[in-house]
Every structure is written in C-alpha cells, then in structure tokens.
Design a protein around this nucleic acid. Structure first.
Lengths: 202, 202
DNA sequence: CTTGTGAGTGAGTAAACACTAACATAAGGT
DNA sequence: ACCTTATGTTAGTGTTTACTCACTCACAAG
C-alpha cells in the first residue's frame, strides 16, 4: 500500500497534480480519475480531501490568486523607477505562466468562469488590480519623461496585457518552441521604445 | 412532428447551433444532446448527419477556416494602400469574432488542438497565412513611409495579433460591455500612430 | 504495547455520455 | 396517386462521470 500523508500535504499534492494535468488534458476535460492516477491514490481518496470537484477547483483558484498577487507585490517592492516596475510586473506574469502553463487556460475556463461565481469575481478583481498597477506605473513614466503623453495610460495598459496574452498563446500553440520570458521581454522593449518615441521628438 | 429538411440544410443548422452553443457552454463541454435541443431534433438525428462527434467538429472547423480566409481575401481586395489593407485585415478579424463569439475559444479548444490533428495543422497554416498578410503590408508601410523601419515587421505583426486577441478576451470576460470592432480599431490606431512616430521625427 | 483517529481502499451508485439498430413517415420524383 | 427514399424517432447499448459507503490499517499519543 501507498504511504499515507497528512491531509494538508495530500491536498497540495492534488492541487499540484491538477495544475500539471490541466495543461495536458484541458481544464474542462480533467476528471477526478485523471487526478487520482497522477497523484497515485484511488479516485475515492480525492473526495476525502475535497467534498466536491467544484471545491477542488476553488482551492486551485485560491492558490493561483495568491501566487499572482505575491508575484506582483514582489515585483513592485524590488524596483523603484516606474519603468523598472512595469518591466518587473510583465516579467512576473511571464514567469508565472512559464511555471504554470495551464494558467491562461484555467483563467478562461468554463469551470471557473461559468460554474464558480465567487471565483470568477475574485479573478476579475485580481485582473483589475493588475491593470491598475500597470496604469499607475505608466502614469509614473509619463511624469518622469520615459513615455509619451500622447497615449492614454489605460490604452497602453491594454496593449501591454494583450502583449502578454498574445505571447503566451503563441508559446503554447507553438509547442513551447521558444523561451517565454526572454521573448516576452524583448517584445515589451520594442513596445516601450515606441512609447518613448513621442517624447524624444519634442 | 417536426418539419423535415434536406440533409444539407440540416447540416448547416447543426453547425450553426454548435457555434452558438460553444460560446455559452464551452467547446469542450458541449454535448450532442445540447446541440440536438438547440436545433430542435432528437439527439439521434445528429448522428444521421455526422457519423461521429469528431466529424461534426471537423465540419465546424472547415466552416470557420473558409469564413476567415474569405474575410481576409475581401479585406485585401477592397483596399489598395498597405495601411488600409492592414486596418481592413484587423477589422475583418474583429468582425468575425463579433459574429461568432465562440471563435477564439474554439480555435484554442482541446477538441481541435488535441483530438483533431488534421484540423490543428489546418488552423496553424491559416494563422501563419494571416501573419504573413500582416507582415507583407507592414513592409509596404515601411516602404511608403507610414511606419518606422525601427520595428521589425514580424514583431509588429505579433503586437497586432496580440492586440486583437487581447481585446477579444476583454470583450468576452466583460460580458460584451462594449462594441468590439470600434474599440479594437481605436486601439489599432493608437498602435499605428506609435508605429508612425519613428518616421515623423526623421 | 495498546488504542483511537483519520487517510486510503474496494465496490458500488445514478446520471450523463457518444453512439446504434429497428422502425416510422414526410417529401419528392414519376 | 403511388412508391421510393431519406430524414427523423424510440428505445436502447456500453462506457465514463462524479460521488458514496462500509471497511481497513498506518501511525502517533498515552
């Protein structure tokens, strides 16, 4: 028989297994059987730790939300200039996706966005927070002269989040044929150079 | 009892129903029962027209591929300058998504990208074709002076496709709270203005 | 060494799934 | 008007799904 673990350890095992499998199988196709096999326990064991599949998904959502929020806080704390902070915010997002490739798929999954109303609102708020961080630092960049005032910070923020999503999609569709973070940061610098152009010509 | 239709008409009914439902229920969660109810026939009737669910998805993929290719051809044919053609290509894409909101979800669904190898390659080729159109017209813009030569056309194309995807995601997550095409074109013009900056300062 | 607790199992359940076979009848060409 | 055909239905099939329940036994505290 298999080694027993305290409930808390096993719970994290299950959540990690789900995150791994969600990338291969897809969030909406993942079954409790798949998860149990990956963890190395019987299917019934999953339900000892999570009363329903929906509550398992809630736990996964919570883990993701905490990780993202922590990564952003760290990015902001470790840098001082608006431009460095902006780059760090984007880099953090790319790193999170690289570490958990299923992240975009889960964020847009029906499991979370249709079935789980609480989690949907949680993520909506989280993404608005990210957008707010971007806008704040873009405003800072306009103030310190590293960005043109011709582009509204809100629009610039949309362009940047789109960039991250676009690269992530290209990365996963192209079977991860390139390193996500370097390629993402390279394109970010292209965009930031464009943002700076307007200023230079003055 | 229900009115009978020639097979060809019914087939398109079924495909249209799937496209409508894929948006609400999700491509990977859609069942043949859901589709049958939407069309207004019994579940078994679906299998009279499509031998398997996978072949139904193939038909859906084919319809999407044809529509996209046609929209691009039309966009290119109706315009002459590189900049107008570029705008038309983006506008066409936004219009397609607005008409078929399930389109992004289907393009990234496991149904097509994991199960259906033929269709996956078909879409990969299609997207590369779109990218090629964008690059060609961006090169034209550099040549006619409406774009800076400082940004590689390939990079600019990635920024633009990301923009479309990003807006589409924001549109669907925000419960379609804004008009997709106008907002998309507005942001496109912001980006195109940035692309032109480098040139202006010369 | 004993014993109480709780992690894990084996063998189920009903519902939902894609798909099938036998039969029915509306529709269209002759 | 008839007869063939193709579209549709009814009532199934086996499989997979999330979830349950009675039971077992590993393990740590006393």
């Amino acid at each position: 028989m298999l080694q027993r673990k305290p409930a808390e350890d096993r719970k994290t095992d299950i959540v990690e297994a789900l995150l791994r499998l969600a990338d291969q199988i897809g969030p909406d196709r993942l079954t409790t059987n798949d998860i149990a096999r990956e963890v190395g326990v019987t299917q019934a064991a999953i339900f000892r730790h999570f009363p329903t599949k929906a509550e398992l998904w809630s736990a996964v959502g919570e883990v993701i939300a905490v990780r993202l929020a922590e990564a952003w806080q760290q990015a902001l704390a470790a840098n001082t200039t608006p431009k460095d902070r902006l780059r760090a915010l984007i880099a953090a997002q790319l790193r999170q996706i690289e570490a958990t490739p299923a992240l975009p798929a889960i964020l847009h999954s029906r499991e979370i966005n249709v079935d789980n109303v609480i989690l949907r609102e949680r993520f909506r708020g989280l993404m608005m927070q990210y957008q707010a961080h971007l806008v704040a630092n873009l405003e800072g960049m306009i103030a310190d002269g590293s960005m043109t005032p011709d582009v509204r910070p809100q629009d610039a923020a949309v362009l940047l989040t789109s960039l991250v999503q676009g690269i992530a999609i290209r990365w996963s569709l192209g079977s991860r044929g390139f390193a996500l973070q370097p390629e993402g940061l390279r394109l970010l610098d292209v965009q930031l150079a464009l943002f700076a152009y307007g200023e230079r010509q003055r």
